[in-house]
């Protein structure tokens, strides 16, 4: 049970951003796509979740070819996808409760009470109980990420996608978010895909890591193997900061 990416290509004009990526994202693990800015991480994530149509290749969610299936199957599959965006992408005009309830209202026949219980549960799960009536403008960056996670897991998805979870956060809050993602992934056995260039995250929570370099998969491995790298662009990427030291 996993997401398989096969021979993924995506170009914008002359710029060949993804050049035949093959990779498997495993269930119950934190799969990370890492790479420098402009390496194609976000394009890859958007191609996987269907926000972009790849030029070539397949994205297979547990046997379902996402880009070549019918609308009904795609719609059903999407109900199993949760995503946390870089800027959280909470709906400004809605309270925290309304944001988290939104997918439940759209796709379930739950009663108001059932939805309220579910919202209370997921907010408790992301350690934000009692924040139901707040608006996104009243939340800090870390709180917004947590509400974003709460909304993403409200439908109990099988797949969780996270785009740059730590951008704009202080190291302590970033660690809390990383741990939350890890906890939820293991607890609910989700296939989690995290796009990041934060090496602290990679080392702390990366179970299955792919390093993208100039639109190609340069390396794959886990968070232990990545620290043993001794040459090439990945070595430069990983050890650019003095905070990350070789074993």
């Amino acid at each position: 049970m996993a997401i398989e990416v096969q021979n993924l290509h995506k170009s914008f004009g002359d710029k060949h951003v993804l050049q035949g990526i093959d990779f498997t994202f495993h269930k119950g693990k934190i799969n990370m796509i890492i790479g420098a800015s402009g390496s194609g991480k976000s394009v890859m994530l958007k191609s996987i979740v269907g926000l972009m149509e790849p030029d070539e290749g397949k994205v297979i969610f547990d046997g379902v070819d996402f880009h070549h299936c019918d609308m009904t199957t795609k719609r059903e599959l999407r109900k199993n996808i949760g995503m946390l965006f870089q800027g959280s992408a909470l709906f400004d005009s809605m309270t925290v409760e309304q944001n988290v309830t939104f997918p439940l209202q759209m796709f379930t026949k739950n009663s108001v009470a059932e939805n309220r219980d579910r919202v209370a549960f997921v907010l408790e799960r992301v350690k934000l109980p009692g924040s139901e009536k707040l608006y996104p403008s009243e939340l800090s960056g870390g709180m917004m990420k947590r509400v974003g996670i709460a909304r993403a897991i409200a439908m109990n998805p099988n797949y969780l996608f996270v785009d740059e979870p730590n951008s704009g956060l202080d190291p302590l809050t970033a660690k809390v978010i990383d741990e939350l993602i890890q906890e939820l992934t293991y607890e609910y056995e989700m296939t989690t895909v995290v796009v990041s260039h934060d090496m602290n995250s990679v080392v702390n929570i990366g179970d299955n890591i792919m390093f993208l370099y100039k639109g190609k998969k340069e390396w794959e491995g886990d968070n232990k193997a990545i620290l043993a790298i001794t040459s090439g662009p990945l070595e430069e990427f990983v050890f650019v900061s003095d905070l990350i030291r070789r074993n």
Binding site: L51, K74, G87, D92, F102
Partner: peptide, 17 residues
């Protein structure tokens, strides 16, 4: 437009809406 640039429309689409 604000929903577009703050990825709120992407969030709707990912949800399947």
């Amino acid at each position: 437009g604000t929903m577009r640039v703050t990825e709120q429309i992407d969030a709707l689409e990912v949800m399947g809406i």
